[in-house]
């Protein structure tokens, strides 16, 4: 009897998805759908927060007051994005602090791009332009995701992201037309961030185990390879425009398809970084864990004060 009910519920659920009716927190949903979303949204949230660190590095060293203010605002936006996403995870019944603890214990993943170091000012340009650019490609389709709170959070995020990519491209363009030292700095940043940016879209479709189900549930609207292709097609002409060279000797434009064809991605490197062997994995997670541990007394104090005050009020 119960089994029949579940399959009936599942049928109705898929019917809603097919009709593009959004799923809301209290609606019935298959457990797998819920777990997939919790995993995906919390990973996305962690990426926003860990992503603050490589750029945060350069706030105190920004070369002028305008760049300093822009970078501060940009990194702060990422904190906001993390927060919007954690609040949508919580609508699924997950607890924010528990998902954060999973990040700190190494159980939960985040975008591997943030495990690369930022060693020059030009990296602020490369990250804004390429990493935020790739993030936008990934995120725009998520604004139409079947889960209401996630889709709404992504609408907010995407509105804010457009300035991120522009400020990054502006930094790169400024460097590219600057002194030889500056141009070299920009090219060097592009060389280091190009391939990791392509890896941000995840493994090739043939290798990606979650894609098919996620597409059926409309959590995902495009495959990894489709998104990667869109990114390459959009970015290559931008690099040409400012006189920088994409570090891919096999890159060529296919007149027939109208698309660029890239060289092979080093997936061994990708999996090593995902596993924890990137240059900065340990630093990033340690830094986030320390922030939480150092803040614990503050969290407790505010709770204690709120309780005291409530007691005084009701006394």
């Amino acid at each position: 009897m119960k089994d029949i009910n579940i399959s009936e519920l599942e049928r109705k659920f898929q019917e809603k998805i097919d009709k593009d009716i959004k799923i809301e927190p209290k609606d019935w949903m298959p457990d797998d759908y819920r777990q997939t979303l919790i995993r995906q949204i919390s990973q996305h949230a962690h990426s926003e927060i860990v992503g603050m660190l490589p750029e945060g590095n350069w706030i105190t060293r920004a070369p002028n007051l305008r760049r300093k203010a822009v970078l501060l605002a940009k990194v702060q936006d990422e904190a906001g994005h993390g927060l919007y996403l954690y609040s949508s995870v919580e609508t699924l019944g997950a607890n924010r602090e528990e998902t954060i603890d999973d990040l700190h214990s190494g159980k939960a993943k985040y975008s591997s791009i943030f495990n690369y170091p930022t060693v020059s000012w030009a990296d602020m340009g490369a990250i804004g332009w390429l990493v935020d650019g790739a993030a936008i490609m990934n995120q725009v389709p998520l604004c139409r995701c079947s889960y209401g709170p996630y889709a709404r959070a992504m609408v907010r995020v995407c509105k804010e992201e457009s300035f991120h990519q522009r400020q990054g491209f502006e930094i790169m363009a400024q460097l590219a037309k600057g002194t030889p030292v500056q141009k070299e700095m920009a090219q060097d940043a592009l060389n280091r961030f190009w391939w990791p940016s392509l890896m941000m879209f995840g493994p090739n479709d043939a290798e990606s185990k979650h894609t098919a189900q996620s597409v059926k549930w409309k959590i995902k609207r495009h495959t990894n390879d489709e998104l990667r292709q869109m990114f390459v097609d959009a970015t290559v002409p931008q690099a040409e425009l400012i006189g920088l060279t994409i570090p891919d000797k096999d890159l060529k434009f296919n007149e027939e398809t109208g698309h660029y064809e890239s060289g092979a991605i080093n997936w061994d490197e990708f999996w090593e970084v995902v596993k924890g062997n990137g240059p900065c994995n340990k630093d990033r997670v340690d830094t986030r864990r320390k922030a939480k541990e150092d803040g614990m007394w503050v969290v407790e104090a505010a709770n204690a004060y709120a309780e005291k005050r409530n007691r005084r009020k009701s006394a």
């Binding site: 990194v75 702060q76 927060l83 803040g295």
Partner: peptide, 29 residues
């Protein structure tokens, strides 16, 4: 204040401190 960005005791407070840093950098400008 900007040294706190990314290291605040809790996300909400990280954002609040960065707002203060931004105001101060704006005033300095």
């Amino acid at each position: 204040m900007s040294e706190w960005c990314g290291h605040g005791p809790i996300l909400e407070e990280d954002i609040a401190m960065t707002n203060i840093a931004l105001d101060l950098v704006g005033q300095a400008t």
